[in-house]
């Protein structure tokens, strides 16, 4: 007899086990998010939007009203909902390609306008669903399907510093952090603070999450965790970057 693992209340048990690849970080991100939603008691008011790419596999993940959108377009869909109904807690869930490449104009402008929504962006340094192409977050010299000899920063630039960019263009009432699936407790705290910032009507909130993609990285478990815990933080600093009226952690 097997015992079902403890799941957040707002998860939809009927759609588990989830559809992500073995070893994928999305499950951990959504666990932290689910627990944050549970603790804040906002399941009824929450609308979850998922971008195209691996993020889309979360479309039936929660017992929460959910909208599949297009690649990069989750930010405007959630913005449109929130502008029309301020009682909604709007969460836009996306990958690094969706947020920093094809949907970057939406992220930049939603942040600039200080939209009262929460954007959660999973950074796994590549386009996972389409087969492991180079992403804006791909590390220098990292091999991907479209940078088979390693990312050449001279030709393709350096990894996007998303939270730092968002922090630079938002007012003091925004919340910005970068967490990691290697520290789920801290990640949950960041998620909760991001959502609280929306609930209080303070302003925009943004959490980037460092996550793993063993399928496209072609790594085993040990190598995957080494990449997440040791390599990625060399380029992406973990911690809170902007906290309205509070001392930052990390």
């Amino acid at each position: 007899m097997s015992v079902a693992p403890k799941m957040p209340k707002c998860w939809r048990p009927e759609t588990k086990a989830h559809k992500f690849c073995p070893g994928c970080g999305h499950g951990l991100v959504l666990k932290a998010l689910g627990e944050a939603i549970d603790e804040l008691g906002i399941q009824e008011r929450t609308v979850f939007g998922c971008d195209i790419g691996c993020s889309l596999l979360a479309w039936d993940f929660f017992n929460i009203d959910t909208v599949q959108t297009h690649h990069g377009r989750t930010t405007p869909v959630i913005t449109g909902i929130k502008r029309a109904n301020e009682d909604v807690i709007g969460i836009a869930y996306m990958g690094d390609g969706g947020g920093y490449a094809i949907g970057s104009q939406h992220l930049v402008n939603a942040a600039t306008r200080n939209e009262k929504i929460t954007v959660i962006l999973v950074n796994n340094t590549n386009y996972g669903m389409t087969g492991g192409q180079m992403a804006p977050t791909t590390l220098p010299n990292q091999k991907t399907e479209t940078s088979p000899y390693g990312r050449d920063v001279e030709a393709t630039g350096n990894p996007t510093q998303g939270p730092e960019m968002v922090a630079a263009i938002t007012p003091d009432t925004a919340y910005v952090a970068r967490g990691t699936v290697a520290n789920v407790r801290q990640l949950k705290k960041f998620m909760k603070r991001a959502l609280e910032n929306q609930i209080s009507g303070n302003g925009f909130s943004f959490v980037e999450v460092l996550s793993g993609c063993p399928t496209n990285w072609r790594t085993n478990a040990a190598e995957t965790w080494k990449f997440i815990e040791e390599t990625m933080p060399q380029y992406f600093k973990i911690g809170e970057i902007k906290v309205p009226g509070e001392k930052k952690e990390g």
């Binding site: 449109g80 929130k82 029309a84 104009q105």
Partner: peptide
């Protein structure tokens, strides 16, 4: 009534979809 000036027409279209999803005549 409300108005939002978006960053481009892609966004104007998708935010309009959001407004409708929220149940508004958008």
């Amino acid at each position: 009534r409300k108005f939002l000036q978006t960053e481009d027409e892609i966004s104007a279209g998708f935010t309009t979809i959001g407004g409708v999803l929220a149940g508004r005549r958008a």
